[in-house]
Amino acid sequence: MFHRPPDPTRREAETVTVTLDGRPVRARTGDTVAAVALLAGLDHTRTNPATGERRAPYCMMGTCFECLMVIDGEPSRQACLVTVREGMVIERQHGAPRLR
């Protein structure tokens, strides 16, 4: 659904490997978790705790809170504000988070 526009400088990008819902995914250094999830083809990144509706990153700038995901075990992180790191574990957030 999403793809990265061609880079006119044709620079070779550095990459990291993250785990996205259990599978390894290569991501470009400097990308946000939300961008990685969309490029990996996820059609939703969480379900709404009240209605169960599927939700995905929308504003990509920290305002709408639609992109909440579980990152390295911590729930309700704003995926569009978190930059990927080598070995990061990213999971979709199903409904309301658990406190333990």
Binding site: P49, A50, S76, G95, A96, P97, R98, L99, R100
Partner: peptide, 11 residues
């Protein structure tokens, strides 16, 4: 003053 959290699983 009062604060309220996001919705979480029953705890």
């Amino acid at each position: 003053q009062i604060m309220v959290t996001e919705r979480v699983q029953p705890y």
